[in-house]
Amino acid sequence: MIGEIIHFDDVEQQGTIRDEKGGEHAFDLVGWRGRGLPGPGLAVDFELRDGRAVQVFNARI
């Protein structure tokens, strides 16, 4: 799925991704596979597993 990080808490190491349809999915640093650190406004590609975003990468746009 394609989406955008709308929130990421560095201390808690958790955040929220909004997908193209407006759905919101929690993710954590364990599921982050992208370059650098995740942050708001970053476009991402991800998979859903048990309602959470996993395998979160920087999207190739």
Rank of each mutant, 00 (worst) to 15 (best):
58 N>S: 02
41 G>W: 01
30 V>W: 15
52 R>I: 09
26 A>L: 03
18 R>F: 10
19 D>H: 09
2 I>L: 11
32 W>F: 00
43 A>M: 15
57 F>P: 11
24 E>S: 03
11 V>I: 15
44 V>D: 14
25 H>A: 07
5 I>N: 10
40 P>T: 03
15 G>T: 01
8 F>T: 04
18 R>V: 13
27 F>I: 04
42 L>W: 13
54 V>L: 00
12 E>N: 15
7 H>R: 13
42 L>K: 12
3 G>A: 05
19 D>R: 06
36 G>F: 06
22 G>W: 01
60 R>T: 09
15 G>E: 00
60 R>A: 11
5 I>C: 05
14 Q>K: 11
43 A>R: 15
17 I>M: 15
28 D>L: 05
29 L>M: 11
1 M>T: 10
13 Q>I: 09
10 D>T: 09
45 D>T: 10
48 L>Y: 02
45 D>W: 10
30 V>P: 05
26 A>T: 04
7 H>K: 10
5 I>F: 12
48 L>I: 14
18 R>I: 07
54 V>I: 15
14 Q>D: 06
31 G>F: 07
45 D>L: 10
34 G>D: 02
16 T>E: 11
60 R>Q: 08
28 D>Q: 05
16 T>L: 15
41 G>A: 05
18 R>L: 09
59 A>Q: 05
18 R>D: 01
27 F>H: 02
3 G>Y: 00
27 F>E: 06
33 R>H: 05
45 D>Y: 10
15 G>W: 01
14 Q>R: 09
25 H>I: 01
31 G>N: 12
48 L>W: 09
1 M>K: 11
50 D>K: 09
44 V>M: 14
48 L>K: 09
7 H>G: 11
54 V>F: 12
17 I>Y: 02
16 T>K: 15
30 V>M: 12
18 R>A: 06
54 V>P: 07
35 R>Q: 12
1 M>V: 09
53 A>P: 04
4 E>M: 11
21 K>G: 04
2 I>N: 13
56 V>H: 06
22 G>P: 03
55 Q>V: 10
16 T>C: 14
3 G>F: 00
10 D>Q: 13
36 G>E: 12
2 I>P: 13
46 F>C: 08
10 D>M: 13
5 I>W: 09
22 G>L: 04
3 G>I: 02
8 F>G: 08
43 A>K: 15
46 F>W: 10
25 H>G: 01
20 E>W: 06
10 D>P: 13
22 G>R: 04
17 I>F: 12
52 R>K: 14
27 F>M: 05
38 P>G: 14
39 G>K: 11
31 G>M: 12
9 D>H: 04
56 V>K: 08
41 G>R: 14
6 I>P: 12
37 L>D: 07
26 A>P: 02
27 F>L: 02
31 G>K: 14
1 M>W: 02
5 I>M: 10
39 G>F: 08
56 V>P: 15
23 G>P: 05
51 G>C: 09
5 I>V: 13
3 G>M: 07
27 F>P: 08
38 P>W: 06
50 D>H: 08
56 V>C: 04
42 L>E: 07
12 E>L: 14
36 G>H: 03
54 V>W: 00
23 G>R: 03
31 G>L: 09
26 A>E: 07
16 T>V: 11
30 V>L: 15
